[in-house]
Design a protein around this nucleic acid. Sequence first.
DNA 1: ACTCTGCGGAGAGGA
Length: 936
Amino acid sequence: MEPLDELELLMEKSFGEEAALPEELFQKKLVASFPRIVLSRGTDNRYLVLAINTVQNKEGNCEKHLVITASQSLENKELCILRNDCSEPATRQMLIGTVLHEVFQKAISNSFAPEKLRELAFQTIQEIRHLKEMYRLNLNQDEIKQEVEDYLPAFCKWAGDYMHKNSSTDFPQMQLSLPSDNNKDNSTCNIEVVKSVDIEESIWSPRFGLKGKIDVTVGVKIHRGCKTKYKIMPLELKTGKESNSIEHRSQVVLYTLLSQERRTDPEAGLLLYLKTGQMYPVPANHLDRRELLKLRNQMAFSLFHRISKSATRQKTQLASLPQIIEEEKTCKYCSQMGNCALYSRAVEQQMDGSSVPIVMLPKIEEETQHLKHTHLEYFSLWYLMLTLESQSKDNKKNHQNIWLMPALEMEKSGSCIGNLIRMEHVKTVCDGQYLHNFQHKNGAIPVTNLMAGDRIIVSGEERSLFALCRGYVKEINMTTVTCLLDRNLSVLPESTLFRLDQEEKNCDIDTPLGNLSKLMENTFVSKKLRDLIIDFREPHFISYLSSVLPRDAKDTVACILKGLNKPQRQAMKKVLLSKDYTLIVGMPGTGKTTTICTLVRILYACGFSVLLTSYTHSAVDNILLKLAKFKIGFLRLGQTQKVHPAIQKFTEQEICKSKSIKSLALLEELYNSQLIVATTCMGINHPIFSRKIFDFCIVDEASQISQPICLGPLFFSRRFVLVGDHQQLPPLVLNHEARALGMSESLFKRLEQNKNAVVQLTVQYRMNSKIMSLSNKLTYEGKLECGSDKVANAVINLPHFKDVKLELEFYADYSGNPWLMGVFEPSNPVCFLNTDKVIKIFSSAGCNPSDIGIIAPYRQQLKIINDLLAHSSVGMVEVNTVDKYQGRDKSIVLVSFVRSNKDGTVNFFLNLFYIIDLPSREHESLCHILGDFQRK
DNA sequence: ACTCTGCGGAGAGGA
């Protein structure tokens, strides 16, 4: 309990309205609901809650503010603040459930002895992924430990009851008749759990259209009279209330269907409640299975028909979700209530002939009353575009092939390798990561597209071993494929033949939809973003730097500013003065990365916390590589696989390993000690973001990110800076209709119409004046300028230029190829030409091969060029697609074009190609150039 | 058709 202080008084306005209901009404309500209730303060305190308000505190966490009173007259109001009320979707019980599952699973293949159980429990709660969840939920490690330990005696009891006994009648009696038994009179039997066959068995069943993971697969003996039946069946663990409910039992029935992919029908499963050690048998009757599959099919049908085409106007629109159920109670506790109401209001209620149960209307209205019409429209438009786009991606997939096509046939497409045998031992990297080596049955591994880092699905060649596990390729050479898999396959016979299939790209619709949903929430942060982004509220700026710059940071900041050019300095100032957002237009070669790095240094010097994000890992790391030189500590989050080697030591994984972090306190210390946190804009599901709020969020490559993705990191900061260049390619959108509806408009572009939020970086250091003039005239309205005379006049340095020139003149090469002369003439920076032999000549003229870059539009073409180079004398020339070059510099860049089809046309994609200067994705500029070129 | 980047996941409980 706290008295109303200044800050809270500020909030009083908002809850004042709710509390302003006539006092008598409250009095009546009070009397009606609690006729003889005594309100009192002190030890036996009993208060009446007059109003509840959810607010966001300074740390960005949710607090519930209750206006309460202990006086019958309701006069003396007090404020009660409920803190650490963590978000519902991830709860304490879920975490405890996960931990207990793991402990039990370890115990069943180890031992249920009390001391062993305690050891396993202790180990498990020290694992970093569980510590991270505890951090997310703001829990106390000791409390969790205690709560886990409270379950252990029941574990022991269960093992004592069901495992290892002398005679079959010592096992507990149960009522279970299997569908195949056919005798209903004797359902009594004794159940013995013989062994654990598998843990977390992962099964995909195309036949039933289901997939799932089975907690424990157990070998069970069913003793009935003198007969004994052996069955391998699913055992489902539950840590919550011992409900033996229809939901729990249905889950087990579904597992009996999954099991049929691997072995004969178990006909039944087991349901074990770990709180008590009580176990229930669940027979899988045909009719139950049939009903469950019917439900599955209904669900699948509506997921498949998320979009409909209206017959009259030929317009695509979102379809209705299955009818809302008319049960307020069920909805009350549903985690999807908000989304459900939002979709109903924004989409379904806008359609002709839509019907919403009348009882649910007030609830839907209440959930969405904070949203304006513009917000609902933004939501439904983006929901439609995202759905269209994800369906386009879905159509490109042909995942059926992986179970319908034999590996030998699939290999032709290059996305599969079959006939593999597991070699030697499996190395356990950590829980859930196992290193496997595979070799081909006949020696060499066939030609394949599979590369290190690719996600894969591992199956046995036999159909019954389909989709055993997943993981990714760690290394691949002529003879061996090394993979990191989520399950240990050494339980299977050595002779098992495996196949690896490239996993279809997971077209992520969840992250953007989640962000979109969050944007519609009734919170302070979301409201602000809605104002700025949807309603185009003008961004505000403060007037004087003195109010943001701490006195003791002034010198440092001034010193850093000295190294910048004019537009860069303006950018720094603008950001510091911003209360909402700033957009930095980074034209090609203007030192975007340096500018961002400097910005971070300044913010750091001022003591601001910064969230640094970008679209790609490489762009994030490019900034961090520069930042590391200035001794600024940072924390790099995200997939370690993709993190730059020099940045690895700053990743959470590495730090946790080197500091051997095994307690929540140490983890909290790590998270709290870092002012700068860096990750991709997709990597925002990290626990740190549910507890921290940053002063600034910087998003690099912002003109390439679609709005709902770019939104993600913005929720975790007070203001944001988008860095990009809308003249470069917009976000990639495959679906034509989605593009036509505006899906390729980035947040950067949308907000750019607020001119006062924009600063342009115009001084460039990459191109000499001739190269620059191309993009300057065609795209940048002459705004670009060279950073110095040195930049303006820079030409390629070829120390052996004269020798090569002589050589060319001497041999027939030159007379046969007169154009070659022009190519390596340093004063000739831009040429269109045939590119045979060029690299060799540049190389022999003294150009370092690593200063040469080759770009080609097609992957296969890159492969061929790479192979040719590998067999030639010139090494270390980098060959890549445009996108991979990511705004880096090379002294010489060769672009290889190709056209190899019968009608000799250049396709749409190739029409968008660019040459000279190589910031990422400047295809559009090329379009201008080529157009211009052809006209001339 | 081709080009592209990000993502652990199915299930942990609740009523």
